[in-house]
Design a binder for these strands. Structure first.
Lengths: 96, 96
DNA sequence: GCGCAATGTAGCATTATTGCACAACAATGC
DNA sequence: GCATTGTTGTGCAATAATGCTACATTGCGC
């Protein structure tokens, strides 16, 4: 869970959701230093969320357990419920 | 996700999985200070994972979005895959 | 083989975040 | 008043994140 508790790592997982990615493809998406990204990925690998495949100098990453994506669905549910709650604060008259 | 990234908070969610709990029921399960538990729960409430129901001096908590439990299932999957990997390191000859 | 760019990783110092206990405070019920 | 139940404020210790630099490995041109 800790491994998923960082925005950058969630973005990485999100990228991998649509398929295998090379680390070098991910780099441009993050403004941060290479080493930082490397560390995030290392964290995900260490807990078994992503697995790798080396191909020459490049490393291709993919999700080791696709069920991770279910977590995203659930997350959406929580966020939407949350948004609804907030809307109720702002405009109580809209609640029926 | 950050809200779920702490063992204590996972334990809280786990407790709530089996139904509503009073905060005072939770306290004995944790050795830590009341204030610490209070803050953990506050964190979970803030992101909409748990919701509360006050009854007199007591506060009853429950999971706001049951799909959280799916995350636990997924977690188990990851952990088991991880365990298998580790076993392979230790005893490669056991792999067939 | 040799130099060199590209791709990743590891070590380090700095900074930001988190977790914790202790104490003080608020609210409820007797 | 007083015990019970929670929350909030504060200071401190532990952890995590980041950028920088230096280093390893691969692939390519010569």
């Amino acid at each position: 869970m800790k491994a998923l508790s960082h925005p950058a790592r969630l973005r990485i997982v999100d990228q991998l959701a649509s398929g295998e990615r090379c680390l070098c493809e991910l780099q441009p998406l993050f403004e941060q230093d290479k080493s930082t990204l490397s560390r995030h990925i290392s964290a995900l690998r260490q807990v078994g969320i992503v697995s790798e495949r080396r191909e020459g100098a490049r490393i291709y990453l993919r999700l080791a357990t696709p069920c991770i994506l279910q977590i995203f669905d659930c997350l959406n549910g929580v966020l939407q419920a949350e948004a609804k709650r907030t809307a109720q604060w702002l405009e109580p008259e809209m609640v029926e």
